[in-house]
Design a protein around this nucleic acid. Structure first.
Lengths: 295, 295
DNA sequence: AACCGGCGTTGAGTCACGCTAAACGAACGC
DNA sequence: GCGTTCGTTTAGCGTGACTCAACGCCGGTT
């Protein structure tokens, strides 16, 4: 049978086609690479590499062996990683959710990254409606959710902010304010603000849809929307204005909608949330993967 | 990474679930098995075996790892075997042929046996008609053929006899001789013998379809057939009698045909034949596999 | 021609580590 | 109670994977 060091030496040399670099990559001397390959060839009974003093190349038998052994090596690694993940608790199914498209991209990228290093996991990424808040977590439909802060529910654990974005106001293109380079919160006075309701708690709604401007002027109330598509169609139809994230302009460009920066509003912050009771190594690993995805 | 001895120890213990037998199978002490497993578990980070002082069992993580590593081990072995075969010249495609069903069974069994030990080969088993003789070899359509001896072609190499069978005579069930417990060659006198022709050489035809009995009486000539099905239908229709092998009664049982032993005829002998010019390690290996298939 | 510099090979020597042997403890059956 | 059958543990041994340095081969340069 093939020893571990023989397998690795053969595969590395088959890729590098250079004894010196092979030894360097494996942390052994070139002499050792030469001896190992030589012994292997003697055992196989035929040369695996055709080498002059200047060049190294695979023989047909060597090439075939390389093609056969490469997947073996991969499987060996994933099998071990899977077992080690299970040992560390990083295994099983993780149902993740997001409400905004850029959140979806972030979660998908993080899921791919995590899966690459932890092949034993199963990660699903689902979209949830704007008005569901953190209800999917409480209902046990999701294990972890990317949501807009603030989150104050006591039974939930929140991760750090992983996405930050400037606030903008979505206006009908024909609106008198639509031409402004930027707006202030005071400009909201009297405008009909499109909101969401549903499962979002009171403090969250107050934070994202204030009832008064800083100076105390009342902000109007427009229609209630449950999804971004609804918000967009309300704005396009002139039924109101909606607060949003600057990225929205890239993800939901509409000819009938103007995205105007809101100068004095605090930035939007997104982060991960999960049920404290359902905390797990897999959740922590996923949160870490999302965190290292940003920059 | 996993060392060879760790892989083998783990897989063996997962199958045996017994440290003593595992050590015995691997030729090491039980202490070594214990140490190896222990070290592996420490590295993985979780127990792979649940063991009391009386029983050993796989943990879920261990079971999963076993299922992952078993195919890896198989692939590793076949990859090595393939390379070693290539080193010994046992590789490539081998087209084999046979004319009788029992020959087909023998070749198929031999092909399976060979393939088990030499995964790099590709072996096809085809049926050839009765009247093609060794023509497929000469035409280059086959590499090796199981045929009824004698073979005297100078450019062909013959292997040893791998199948021997008593001769019988196929008669219509209603024929007066059909009731006899056995027949002698003299009984052929005057009977219309069903023969084949095609590519079979003269000496072969004379050997299998004699024109006279030992005492000199003429043997008749019936219709010419190219396949066993034709022979059988000629016999059933009463158009003649046919010499054959005793096994035929098992492989071609027909209500309208009687198989009566031919007492004084030499037994039928089958063996492998191949073109001397196309001799190869693969052919020799296959011939050996066929030879060791019989008993 | 002579001289490099890069590269694979070879041999002597060293040290980690896989392995054994033996003692030990735990869990049964009688 | 004892004997048996397991798996575990420890000290000590020996093999073989490794390093280091010298060597030979080849192509490019002056």
């Amino acid at each position: 049978m093939l020893e571990r060091y023989e397998l690795e030496t053969f595969l590395t040399l088959a890729e590098e086609l250079h004894f010196g670099r092979t030894g360097e990559r494996l942390g052994v001397s070139t002499g050792r690479v030469s001896q190992t390959v030589r012994k292997l060839e003697r055992r196989i009974g035929t040369p695996l590499f055709a080498r002059t003093s200047r060049t190294v190349d695979l023989t047909p038998v060597g090439r075939r062996l390389y093609e056969d052994l490469l997947p073996v090596h991969r499987q060996l690694r994933t099998a071990l990683e899977r077992a080690m993940d299970a040992g560390r608790g990083i295994h099983g199914r993780l149902r993740t959710g997001f409400a905004t498209p850029w959140g979806g991209e972030l979660l998908t990228a993080a899921a791919d990254a995590l899966l690459a290093g932890h092949p034993g996991c199963e990660i699903t990424v689902r979209e949830v409606s704007l008005d569901s808040g953190v209800r999917p977590l409480e209902d046990g439909e999701l294990d972890i959710q990317l949501t807009a802060f603030p989150v104050r529910e006591p039974e939930l654990t929140t991760g750090p902010v992983v996405l930050r974005d400037d606030r903008v106001l979505l206006l009908p293109a024909a609106h008198p304010l639509a031409g402004r380079p930027s707006l202030g919160l005071e400009d909201l006075a009297g405008l009909p603000l499109i909101t969401t309701e549903g499962a979002n708690p009171r403090h969250w709604l107050d934070h994202h849809y204030p009832r008064r401007t800083p100076s105390g002027a009342r902000i109007g109330r427009g229609p209630v929307a449950a999804t971004w598509q609804e918000v967009l169609s309300h704005v396009t139809a002139g039924r109101g204005v909606a607060p949003g994230a600057a990225r929205g302009a890239r993800y939901h460009p509409r000819p009938g909608i103007a995205y105007v920066p809101l100068r004095d509003a605090p930035p939007l912050e997104y982060g991960l949330v999960w049920r404290t009771a359902a905390d797990s190594a897999l959740i922590r690993a996923f949160a870490a993967a999302v965190g290292s995805q940003g920059p």
